[in-house]
């Protein structure tokens, strides 16, 4: 664990346009086919103008892990990702209910849970949704960095208002 906490994929609602390219690349990266049902990141659009891609936020003390009656889920100490033990999971879906973001889904074939693995199978460890998002709406970040950014933005805004050019 880095000093600032585990990194996860976060979408900026102002930048996300709802194009679902993240879903396409996620299923392509993991399964070699295109299918949003295989994607570990899913896009929500609420008309007229709300768009947001959602995936696992690597909660501290993750509720999905606690909810699993078969101890099939564990959280990686190395990068904080949720690891699914495919032999133990029976697809009961308690973890899905426990997740406030709908970040876990069932694999359409295996009927066991799947969740963002941060593309840790890749040598470069780069989550492909972040790499491919044409709007640069997705970033690999953590709560400390998000708070820092918000703070800096707020202060910049404040001083811009106070000191007009």
């Amino acid at each position: 664990m880095s000093k600032t906490g585990h990194l996860f994929v976060s979408a900026d609602p102002e930048k996300c346009v709802g194009c679902r390219i993240c879903e396409y690349i996620c299923s392509f990266e993991h399964n070699g086919v295109f299918n949003p049902l295989r994607s570990r990141i899913r896009v929500v659009r609420i008309y007229p103008t709300i768009n947001l891609a959602i995936t696992c936020r690597l909660c501290e003390d993750a509720p999905c892990v606690k909810a699993c009656p078969r101890d099939a889920l564990t959280q990686s100490e190395e990068n904080g990702a949720i690891i699914v033990d495919e032999d133990k999971c029976n697809g009961c879906g308690w973890c899905i209910e426990a997740c406030d973001f709908g970040a876990l889904t069932l694999d359409p074939d295996k009927k066991i849970v799947m969740v963002c693995d941060l593309c840790s199978h890749r040598e470069d460890k780069k989550p492909q949704c972040v790499e491919w998002c044409p709007e640069e709406a997705l970033s690999l970040t953590n709560r400390v960095i998000l708070a820092q950014k918000a703070r800096i933005d707020a202060v910049e805004k404040l001083f811009k208002a106070m000191l007009p050019e």
């Binding site: 194009c19 679902r20 007229p48 103008t49 768009n51 044409p134 709007e135």
Partner: peptide, 19 residues
């Protein structure tokens, strides 16, 4: 225009939403 959003699999996104 309050938002520009996109269709499926489009990196160009052109849908201009006027409110």
């Amino acid at each position: 225009v309050v938002k520009i959003q996109g269709c499926e699999a489009c990196p160009m996104r052109c849908e201009h939403i006027a409110l």
